[in-house]
Simulated assay, not measured.
Amino acid sequence: MTCTYWIFATPRRERSRATSSGFTLMELLIVISIIVILMLIAIPTANTIRKHTDEVSAQKSLQTIEQAQSMYATNYPVNGFACTLQALAGESTAGPPSPTSAQLISGQLTTGIKDGYIFSITNCTKVTVNNTDRVTGYVLTAVPATPGKTGDRGFCVESGGPIKMDPAGGSNCTQMVQ
Protein backbone atom coordinates (compact mmCIF):
# COMPACT_ATOMS: atom_id res chain seq x y z
CA MET A 1 0.00 0.00 0.00
CA THR A 2 2.81 2.31 0.47
CA CYS A 3 3.37 2.38 -3.25
CA THR A 4 -0.19 3.30 -3.92
CA TYR A 5 -0.04 5.91 -1.26
CA TRP A 6 3.12 7.35 -2.79
CA ILE A 7 1.47 7.70 -6.26
CA PHE A 8 -1.55 9.51 -4.88
CA ALA A 9 0.54 11.60 -2.53
CA THR A 10 2.61 13.04 -5.37
CA PRO A 11 1.42 16.61 -6.05
CA ARG A 12 -0.04 17.12 -9.46
CA ARG A 13 1.70 19.54 -11.73
CA GLU A 14 0.20 22.96 -12.32
CA ARG A 15 -1.30 23.53 -15.74
CA SER A 16 1.32 24.57 -18.25
CA ARG A 17 1.48 28.14 -19.55
CA ALA A 18 0.51 27.01 -23.06
CA THR A 19 -2.98 26.08 -21.93
CA SER A 20 -3.65 29.44 -20.26
CA SER A 21 -6.42 31.58 -21.74
CA GLY A 22 -5.59 33.96 -24.63
CA PHE A 23 -3.80 33.71 -27.96
CA THR A 24 -0.17 33.02 -28.60
CA LEU A 25 1.92 35.45 -30.62
CA MET A 26 2.07 32.96 -33.50
CA GLU A 27 -1.73 32.68 -33.66
CA LEU A 28 -2.10 36.45 -33.75
CA LEU A 29 0.50 36.78 -36.53
CA ILE A 30 -1.30 34.16 -38.62
CA VAL A 31 -4.66 35.93 -38.24
CA ILE A 32 -3.13 39.31 -39.11
CA SER A 33 -1.42 37.78 -42.17
CA ILE A 34 -4.73 36.35 -43.41
CA ILE A 35 -6.45 39.74 -42.97
CA VAL A 36 -3.68 41.51 -44.90
CA ILE A 37 -3.93 39.00 -47.77
CA LEU A 38 -7.72 39.46 -47.96
CA MET A 39 -7.30 43.26 -48.02
CA LEU A 40 -4.76 43.04 -50.84
CA ILE A 41 -7.27 41.05 -52.85
CA ALA A 42 -10.27 43.29 -52.02
CA ILE A 43 -8.79 46.78 -52.54
CA PRO A 44 -8.15 46.52 -56.32
CA THR A 45 -11.62 45.04 -56.78
CA ALA A 46 -13.17 47.93 -54.84
CA ASN A 47 -11.32 50.47 -57.03
CA THR A 48 -12.55 48.74 -60.20
CA ILE A 49 -16.12 48.76 -58.91
CA ARG A 50 -15.85 52.46 -58.00
CA LYS A 51 -14.56 53.36 -61.49
CA HIS A 52 -17.38 51.41 -63.08
CA THR A 53 -20.03 53.14 -60.95
CA ASP A 54 -18.51 56.54 -61.74
CA GLU A 55 -18.66 55.74 -65.47
CA VAL A 56 -22.30 54.62 -65.24
CA SER A 57 -23.11 57.79 -63.28
CA ALA A 58 -21.44 59.89 -66.00
CA GLN A 59 -23.56 58.24 -68.69
CA LYS A 60 -26.77 58.77 -66.70
CA SER A 61 -25.81 62.39 -66.03
CA LEU A 62 -25.28 62.96 -69.76
CA GLN A 63 -28.77 61.58 -70.37
CA THR A 64 -30.14 64.00 -67.74
CA ILE A 65 -28.38 66.97 -69.37
CA GLU A 66 -29.61 65.82 -72.79
CA GLN A 67 -33.21 65.77 -71.51
CA ALA A 68 -32.72 69.21 -69.96
CA GLN A 69 -31.44 70.50 -73.33
CA SER A 70 -34.57 69.20 -75.05
CA MET A 71 -36.79 70.89 -72.47
CA TYR A 72 -34.77 74.11 -72.75
CA ALA A 73 -35.23 74.18 -76.53
CA THR A 74 -38.97 73.65 -76.05
CA ASN A 75 -39.28 76.36 -73.37
CA TYR A 76 -37.03 78.91 -75.12
CA PRO A 77 -37.34 78.27 -78.88
CA VAL A 78 -35.84 81.66 -79.73
CA ASN A 79 -32.61 80.67 -77.93
CA GLY A 80 -32.49 77.07 -79.14
CA PHE A 81 -30.24 75.03 -76.87
CA ALA A 82 -28.19 76.16 -73.86
CA CYS A 83 -24.43 76.62 -74.26
CA THR A 84 -23.61 76.38 -70.54
CA LEU A 85 -24.63 74.18 -67.65
CA GLN A 86 -25.38 77.35 -65.67
CA ALA A 87 -28.10 78.27 -68.18
CA LEU A 88 -29.73 74.87 -67.58
CA ALA A 89 -29.34 75.21 -63.81
CA GLY A 90 -30.72 77.68 -61.33
CA GLU A 91 -32.48 77.81 -58.00
CA SER A 92 -36.23 78.18 -57.68
CA THR A 93 -35.65 80.68 -54.86
CA ALA A 94 -33.93 83.06 -57.33
CA GLY A 95 -37.18 83.78 -59.16
CA PRO A 96 -38.94 82.31 -62.17
CA PRO A 97 -37.03 80.29 -64.77
CA SER A 98 -35.32 82.26 -67.52
CA PRO A 99 -33.02 81.54 -70.49
CA THR A 100 -30.00 82.22 -68.25
CA SER A 101 -31.35 80.19 -65.30
CA ALA A 102 -33.82 77.61 -66.61
CA GLN A 103 -33.93 75.51 -63.42
CA LEU A 104 -33.85 72.24 -65.37
CA ILE A 105 -30.88 70.57 -63.64
CA SER A 106 -29.80 70.73 -60.04
CA GLY A 107 -27.31 69.29 -57.59
CA GLN A 108 -23.75 68.54 -58.52
CA LEU A 109 -24.38 68.80 -62.26
CA THR A 110 -24.73 72.58 -61.92
CA THR A 111 -21.07 72.80 -60.91
CA GLY A 112 -19.96 70.60 -63.81
CA ILE A 113 -18.28 68.03 -61.54
CA LYS A 114 -20.03 64.88 -60.36
CA ASP A 115 -18.77 61.46 -59.24
CA GLY A 116 -15.23 62.01 -60.49
CA TYR A 117 -16.24 63.33 -63.93
CA ILE A 118 -16.10 66.83 -65.40
CA PHE A 119 -19.10 67.81 -67.55
CA SER A 120 -19.27 70.58 -70.14
CA ILE A 121 -21.23 71.81 -73.13
CA THR A 122 -18.92 72.54 -76.06
CA ASN A 123 -18.95 73.21 -79.81
CA CYS A 124 -22.13 75.26 -79.78
CA THR A 125 -23.38 75.92 -83.32
CA LYS A 126 -25.20 79.25 -83.63
CA VAL A 127 -27.44 80.75 -86.27
CA THR A 128 -28.41 84.41 -86.21
CA VAL A 129 -32.14 84.99 -86.70
CA ASN A 130 -33.54 88.56 -86.39
CA ASN A 131 -30.32 89.72 -84.72
CA THR A 132 -30.63 86.97 -82.09
CA ASP A 133 -28.23 84.04 -81.81
CA ARG A 134 -30.03 80.70 -81.78
CA VAL A 135 -28.00 77.65 -80.75
CA THR A 136 -28.78 74.77 -83.11
CA GLY A 137 -26.16 72.24 -82.06
CA TYR A 138 -23.84 71.30 -79.19
CA VAL A 139 -21.65 68.53 -77.80
CA LEU A 140 -21.92 67.31 -74.21
CA THR A 141 -18.72 65.89 -72.75
CA ALA A 142 -17.91 63.98 -69.57
CA VAL A 143 -14.23 63.26 -68.93
CA PRO A 144 -12.67 61.69 -65.83
CA ALA A 145 -11.23 64.24 -63.39
CA THR A 146 -8.36 61.82 -62.76
CA PRO A 147 -8.04 59.34 -65.65
CA GLY A 148 -7.37 55.83 -64.41
CA LYS A 149 -8.66 56.61 -60.92
CA THR A 150 -12.16 58.10 -61.30
CA GLY A 151 -12.75 56.52 -64.70
CA ASP A 152 -11.00 55.13 -67.75
CA ARG A 153 -13.32 56.37 -70.51
CA GLY A 154 -14.60 59.75 -71.65
CA PHE A 155 -18.17 60.17 -72.94
CA CYS A 156 -19.81 62.52 -75.46
CA VAL A 157 -23.26 63.25 -76.88
CA GLU A 158 -23.83 65.34 -80.01
CA SER A 159 -27.17 67.24 -80.12
CA GLY A 160 -29.63 64.48 -79.35
CA GLY A 161 -27.46 61.66 -80.65
CA PRO A 162 -26.35 58.49 -78.89
CA ILE A 163 -23.70 58.43 -76.18
CA LYS A 164 -20.26 57.68 -77.58
CA MET A 165 -17.02 57.02 -75.72
CA ASP A 166 -13.30 57.70 -75.88
CA PRO A 167 -11.44 54.69 -74.41
CA ALA A 168 -8.44 56.95 -73.68
CA GLY A 169 -10.49 59.06 -71.26
CA GLY A 170 -10.67 62.20 -73.38
CA SER A 171 -13.34 63.85 -75.49
CA ASN A 172 -12.41 62.28 -78.85
CA CYS A 173 -15.49 60.06 -78.77
CA THR A 174 -15.66 57.72 -81.74
CA GLN A 175 -16.95 54.43 -80.31
CA MET A 176 -20.53 53.60 -79.36
CA VAL A 177 -21.19 52.78 -75.72
CA GLN A 178 -22.27 49.16 -75.34
Results as ranks from 00 to 15, higher is better:
Thr136Phe: 09
Ser171Phe: 07
Ala73Pro: 07
Glu27Ile: 09
Ile163Cys: 03
Phe8Glu: 14
Ser16Gly: 11
Ile37Asp: 00
Pro99Glu: 04
Ala42Tyr: 12
Thr132Met: 13
Pro162Phe: 10
Pro97Trp: 06
Pro162Asn: 14
Ser101Asp: 11
Lys51Ser: 07
Tyr5Glu: 15
Ile163Glu: 02
Val157Gly: 01
Val127Ala: 09
Glu55Ile: 01
Lys60Trp: 00
Asn130Cys: 02
Ser159Asp: 04
Thr93Phe: 00
Leu104Ser: 08
Arg134Glu: 04
Ala73Trp: 13
Glu27His: 04
Leu40Glu: 03
Phe8Lys: 14
Asn47Arg: 13
Arg15Tyr: 07
Val129Ala: 07
Val177Gly: 02
Met26Leu: 13
Gly160Pro: 12
Cys173Arg: 12
Arg153Asn: 14
Thr4Ile: 15
Thr146Ile: 09
Tyr117Asn: 02
Ile43Gln: 09
Pro162Glu: 10
Gly151Thr: 02
Gly80Tyr: 08
Lys60His: 07
Thr111Phe: 05
Lys126Ala: 09
Gly160Ala: 07
Ser101Cys: 04
Val143Leu: 07
Thr141Asn: 15
Cys124Asn: 11
Ser106Val: 03
Thr4Leu: 14
Asn131Val: 10
Ser106Thr: 12
Ala42Trp: 13
Leu140Asp: 03
Leu40Gly: 15
Met176Arg: 03
Pro96Gly: 14
Asp54Gln: 13
Ser98Phe: 09
Ser16Trp: 14
Cys156Gly: 07
Thr110Trp: 00
Lys164Ala: 05
Val78Trp: 05
Ile121His: 06
Thr110Gly: 12
Val157Asp: 06
Leu29Glu: 13
Gln178Val: 09
Ala18Gln: 12
Pro162Asp: 12
Thr125Ile: 08
Gln67Gly: 05
Thr100Phe: 04
Ser106Arg: 08
Ala102Tyr: 10
Ser98Leu: 01
Pro162Ala: 15
